[in-house]
Amino acid sequence: MPIKIPDTLPAFETLVHEGVRVMSETAAIRQDIRPLQIGLLNLMPNKIKTEVQMARLVGASPLQVEFTLVRVGGHKAKNTSEEHLLSFYQTWDEVKDRKFDGFIITGAPVETMPYEDVTYWSEMQQIFDWTATNVHSTLNVCWGGMAAIYHFHKVPKQALKQKAFGVYRHRNLKPSSVYLNGFSDDFQVPVSRWTEVRRTDIEKVPGLEILMESDEMGVCLVHEKAGNRLYMFNHVEYDSTSLADEYFRDVQAGIPIKMPHDYFPHNDPELAPLNRWRSHAHLFFGNWINEIYQTTAYDLTKIGTTSEAEAG
């Protein structure tokens, strides 16, 4: 089944061109099934690019998914038009009475700041707490993952001496995990961050299980069964050119930056990078969506209740 998004959303035509099945409201109504409700709290500056990246992976599922775009209400976007936000986004305050089968919280360009100094941190704390009662499974990505694991468990982030930037080999630490079904033992993942969450701090918290790790870049993916949460610190969702866009942006701005590790062929930025993580990105999101489908309540109102927890 396809993903249901507004047919005027810029991502619509991009996904159709890529062969991702999308559907209109009319077509969705004809199918007598309950679509999975997946929300995306988009904290990234270029919201349209992130919409495409996430919708591409969520929409590859064989299940019908209704995709809801959400933004924080206490922050004014600088790189996305107000018209786009008003047309396609709801604030968290507008959706907080709803229940979601799955909810994605993205990264944000504030990772070097203390969490408490982020202007919308108070709203983020409310959102994290809300996911515990209104969302069946939450996927927290990059800064979203670091902020969530700090909020729930006070696991700190640590500043890096230089930006972790490039494509790095990762190891599958838990092949039996439903989220790593079909994964290779060794695979590539894009990394772009100035901070990290360390294994030694994660291991102090009972119930946190490390699923993916890089010898060079550290922990990548953590699962918390009790809260039905995933903390992903890197960027499996990235496009082929995402790291190149960041690199050339900083070069043009005169910001010191090293060439992304193991990304451009022969370390030549004139050559187009090869995407070596796409298949595992689809596997990961497909596994997440499938696990949601297998374990969520049919009655949305039961999400977050004791009866749903007992059923899971």
Rank of each mutant, 00 (worst) to 15 (best):
T50N: 08
F100Q: 03
L139F: 06
L274M: 14
P260Y: 07
Q125A: 13
T200M: 09
P175Y: 04
I33W: 08
V155K: 03
V110H: 01
V118H: 05
N134F: 01
F152D: 07
V16A: 12
N267A: 15
V58Y: 06
A77M: 05
R171W: 07
V58G: 08
I292G: 00
I33R: 12
R229D: 00
V189Q: 07
T305R: 00
E213G: 10
E237D: 02
I29L: 12
K258A: 09
F103K: 04
W277S: 08
V178I: 05
V251C: 06
P6D: 09
T200R: 11
Q64I: 15
G59P: 02
F165L: 03
G312R: 14
E213T: 12
G166Q: 07
L160W: 13
L300E: 00
H223N: 02
Q252W: 02
I127L: 14
Q126H: 08
Y115M: 12
F12W: 15
S81Q: 09
I292P: 02
H17G: 07
D239L: 06
V52A: 08
V219M: 08
T112F: 06
A55G: 09
L160I: 10
D299P: 00
F103N: 00
Y247Q: 05
I105Y: 03
R56N: 12
S137N: 05
T91L: 04
K154Q: 14
H151E: 04
T68M: 07
V191P: 07
Y115T: 04
E203R: 10
L180E: 01
W143N: 05
T68D: 11
M217W: 04
I255G: 00
P109C: 06
S184W: 12
N287P: 11
A311E: 05
L208I: 03
V191G: 06
A55I: 08
D239W: 05
V167D: 05
M44F: 00
L139D: 01
I303S: 02
G304P: 02
P35C: 09
P256N: 00
A147S: 14
V118T: 06
S307Q: 09
M44V: 03
V219P: 03
A281I: 03
T8I: 07
S192E: 14
P6A: 13
K163Q: 11
H280N: 10
M124E: 02
K49Y: 01
E203A: 10
S192D: 13
K225S: 13
L63Y: 13
S87L: 13
N46G: 08
H170C: 15
A60V: 07
D32M: 14
N275V: 11
L36F: 11
M232H: 09
P260R: 03
D245Y: 04
L300F: 02
